[in-house]
């Protein structure tokens, strides 16, 4: 068990290292002077010279990576020349809305998708099953921002139930906080629901043909116990896995959703940074998002131990 933990942790290190190399190379393999790119379009020559000095641009590439990576490990992601603050600080300032939006989305998605997937698998080929499969193809196809505008138009503009856009910090009271989060979370959860429901359906369907399900039914267990305690419990691993993999979709969706709803989170920061050609911030945000993604999938792997006692490493 402990050996597995160590091994699994050790396996994520090379992935993170390669991510770091890729993010580093992003700027170095681009034609042009990295110092000038980082400094931005309105930088003075002295400023560019100073950045060149800091990056160690006169040294070989590998040494430059060493300098940069050393800084990253120390928590120094560089300074944003657009926002005039440290990138790490900037990320911390913007993390709350993104975290709130993501958690809200995952909760909605799991609460909707898992029961739907189980029911669809239970009545395979039934109307719910066919509707769910149709919905999931649509969920994958409808662009997040189109869905966002449809919801804003109906719920906020026509019915006037929820605010059109904006964000309220949780410190300002739970009511306004959640009212601003409902629409963005529903928007973002649709594609996630499609993904999770599909996998839940397939995974539960597989399990339902197992002998122990027939045994459970034969001994007179009520159907809901069979579905939840026997089928869903044994189908959990692929479902948890897809929730983890889906975080990549979620991060992509956050960038779009935050822009549409005017939420000042990390996704909005990414777009602002790109529009301002603020490369230290772009690098920092990409590194941060990738780190979170790898970390979540590490946790997912570790959770197999809890969900499936057959897995022993």
């Amino acid at each position: 068990m402990f050996a597995f933990l160590v091994k699994r942790l050790a396996a994520t290190v090379p992935v993170l290292l390669i991510v770091a190399v890729l993010v580093f190379l992003l700027l170095r393999l681009t034609p042009g002077d990295p110092a000038a790119i980082i400094a931005g379009d309105a930088a003075s020559p002295e400023n560019v010279a100073k950045i060149r000095e800091n990056l160690g641009l006169s040294k070989p590439l590998i040494a430059q990576f060493g300098i940069w990576f050393g800084n990253v490990l120390a928590g120094d992601l560089g300074e944003s020349y657009f926002f005039k603050v440290k990138v790490a600080e900037l990320i911390m300032q913007r993390i709350e809305p993104t975290l709130a939006l993501s958690i809200c989305t995952i909760v909605i998605a799991v609460l909707v998708a898992v029961p739907l997937g189980v029911l669809a698998a239970w009545k395979q080929g039934g109307w719910l099953d066919r509707m769910l499969m149709g919905f999931s193809v649509m969920g994958f196809s409808i662009p997040v921002f189109v869905l966002a505008y449809i919801l804003i138009w109906i719920v906020s503009l026509k019915l006037g139930w929820l605010p059109v856009q904006g964000y309220e910090r949780i410190a300002g009271g739970f009511g306004p906080f959640i009212r601003h989060l409902i629409l963005p979370s529903i928007t973002l959860s649709v594609i996630y629901i499609a993904l999770i429901a599909r996998v839940t359906r397939a995974s539960v369907q597989d399990v339902l043909s197992e002998d122990y399900i027939r045994t459970a039914r034969a001994k007179g267990l009520p159907e809901n116990r069979v579905l939840i305690a026997h089928a869903l419990a044994n189908a959990a691993v692929p479902i948890i896995t897809v929730i983890g993999i889906g975080v990549a979709l979620l991060i992509g969706g956050v960038v779009v959703t935050e822009s549409v709803y005017g939420i000042p989170g990390l996704g909005r920061l990414t777009v602002d940074a790109v529009l301002a050609r603020d490369f230290p911030t772009i690098q920092g945000v990409i590194l941060f998002f990738s780190f979170v993604y790898v970390l979540i999938n590490l946790l997912v792997d570790l959770s197999y131990l809890a969900f499936d006692p057959r897995i022993r490493y």
């Binding site: 991510v19 960038v255 050609r277």
Partner: peptide
């Protein structure tokens, strides 16, 4: 594996920006 660990849309955004 490294490329897959970075959300695709972020790679695309960053490359187009560069």
């Amino acid at each position: 594996d490294g490329i897959m660990a970075i959300p695709g849309i972020l790679i695309a955004i960053a490359l187009v920006a560069l």
